[in-house]
């Protein structure tokens, strides 16, 4: 039965996706494209493009896309449930342990070391997005600099810091402004 098979495939993919959604992509290619042949390689490439340009976690987007392509809306639902099941189980257990042992001195010192490291990793994500926004995914040179993006970035940062505007309005506003400015240019 295709639904059960999709569920089982995505439970495995969910379990071995370690280090964020992008880690799911090679697993999906291996299990879904190469072994089961549910979607073609060209469709898989499209998933990546779509998952990146639509809201939501990339792995969930990919799981839904594969499911819908293979077995309709219900397939999409089942694939997504399969993907989050291992996360739900493991993260709930870890939450329980975190609540219990957070105050232990070893854990406290260790957590104190991890916090700045995590912040450093978030900064990496920021640097990657800034590079993508300012250079449009091209090599760094003066010709490729996107002045509209730099302007939007600066205005957004001021709006966030000085006026404490809700980030969702910032993003929608930037989207609207982007549509207008890039269209004019």
């Amino acid at each position: 039965m295709i639904y059960l098979n999709l569920l089982w495939e995505f439970i495995q993919i969910g379990l071995f996706t370690i280090g964020g959604g992008y880690a799911a992509l090679p697993l999906i290619k291996n299990r879904i494209v190469d072994i089961n042949g549910y979607i073609s390689l060209a469709e898989f490439m499209d998933i990546i493009a779509i998952a990146e340009s639509t809201p939501g976690p990339i792995a969930i987007n990919a799981a839904t896309f594969v499911g819908v392509k293979t077995a309709g809306i219900l397939g999409g639902l089942i694939s997504t449930i399969g993907f989050v099941l291992p996360s739900l189980t493991i993260v709930l257990i870890l939450s329980l342990l975190y609540g219990k042992y957070k105050e232990l001195s070893v854990i406290k010192t260790t957590l104190k070391t991890i916090r700045p490291v995590t912040l450093g990793l978030i900064a990496v994500a920021a640097a990657t997005i800034i590079k993508l926004a300012f250079l449009g995914g091209q090599i760094a040179s003066i010709d490729n600099i996107d002045y509209v993006a730099i302007g939007l970035f600066a205005v957004s940062l001021i709006a966030l810091r000085a006026f404490k505007l809700n980030p969702i309005w910032i993003m929608l506003g930037c989207g609207g402004a982007g549509l207008l400015l890039y269209w004019i240019i």
């Binding site: 340009s53 920021a126 997005i129 800034i130 993508l132 926004a133 449009g136 996107d146 509209v148 993006a149 730099i150 939007l152 970035f153 600066a154 957004s156 940062l157 966030l160 980030p167 910032i170 993003m171 929608l172 506003g173 930037c174 989207g175 609207g176 402004a177 982007g178 549509l179 400015l181 890039y182």
Partner: peptide, 12 residues
């Protein structure tokens, strides 16, 4: 639209 949004996300 998406391109404009990226700049906003970076600022957030």
């Amino acid at each position: 639209f998406l391109k404009g949004m990226q700049a906003g996300i970076a600022a957030v």
